Simulated scan of single mutants.
Amino acid sequence: MTPAHPAYAQLRQVTDIAAVMLEDNPGMMTLDGTNTWILRAPGREECVVVDPGEADEEHLLRVASVGPVALTLITHRHGDHTGGIDRFVELTGSPVRSVDPKFRRRTDAGLPDGELIEEVGLAIRVLRTPGHTLDSTSFVIEGEGSVLTGDTILGRGTTVLDSTDGDLGDYLASLRSLIDLGTGRTVLPGHGPDLPDLQTVAQQYLDHREDRLDQVRAALEALGADASVRSVVEHVYTDVDEKLWPVAEQSVRVQLDYLRR
């Protein structure tokens, strides 16, 4: 019987091609922990790994043990997805491809939008989905159609946009790109459980963001155009536990940048 999420320290098969190893690093921003995805074509030994996770020796050893790793891909720069890269390369010898050159190892190859990566019997389409961070990238597994979404879409809750290089305009466009992929695609997220229909979830995310934008616009009308981030959070996020307000401030800062542009 296939274990259910969250299943720590074990390989959980999700689709015919994709399995997940959940890192034991739960937290406010990581939910149950970071999902490290292992992609393997039927009948093949070698695999492709997406997001090795933090520098957690036990987790990295478990991932490295699942089989020869031909390639490692990175969805975005955050440390809970990239912190273990160097140790993972030591363990596996795998090249690492990412949008940000800082995280590339044993290759100079980036992740240009639309590229079809053909490796060890897999065909993986690169779909740039910036917004959560500037370098955020999704991967479409051709053939079965499932999509690795990194932190652009999570298995539960909503995504916080990084206030340093996240961009709401980019994020809304990325959600529309995911919606345009069509129905019936399994969501393989960076955190949380897998979900059955990407188009439905992406539309819910888009509707939620547009609703929040309307609320922020209304807050600015009530508080004044120069209202502070904190005052907007206190006005808008009355339905959210105050312990989460520091996280909400990141989202509001990005929303205000978007509106004030």
Rank of each mutant, 00 (worst) to 15 (best):
F103S: 02
H235G: 04
L172P: 04
S65L: 12
G83A: 15
L198I: 13
P196V: 15
R230Y: 14
R12A: 15
Q199M: 15
G131V: 08
L168R: 07
L122K: 00
I74A: 05
E234T: 11
D162F: 12
E90M: 15
R230T: 14
H78Q: 09
V14P: 00
G84P: 14
G224H: 13
L220Q: 06
T36A: 11
L148K: 01
S94F: 01
V247A: 15
D207Y: 02
K102N: 08
V49Q: 00
V147E: 04
G145R: 06
R12L: 14
V69F: 10
G114V: 13
L168A: 04
V69Q: 03
S98H: 05
D56R: 09
V89Y: 08
A55Q: 12
R97G: 01
G110A: 10
T34N: 06
Y205M: 06
D32T: 04
L198E: 08
G67K: 08
I124Y: 01
A18H: 01
P26I: 07
L188Y: 03
L213A: 10
L223R: 13
G192K: 00
I124M: 07
A219P: 07
G131W: 03
L172R: 14
D24T: 09
G182P: 01
L178V: 08
G184Y: 05
L172D: 05
A173R: 10
A70D: 05
I117M: 03
V14M: 09
T200A: 14
T129C: 09
L206E: 10
R156L: 10
D180I: 12
V240D: 01
E119D: 07
G67H: 09
W37K: 00
P246D: 13
L198A: 12
K102V: 12
P42G: 07
V187G: 00
G121K: 03
D211Y: 12
A109E: 15
L259K: 09
R176L: 10
E221P: 12
R105D: 07
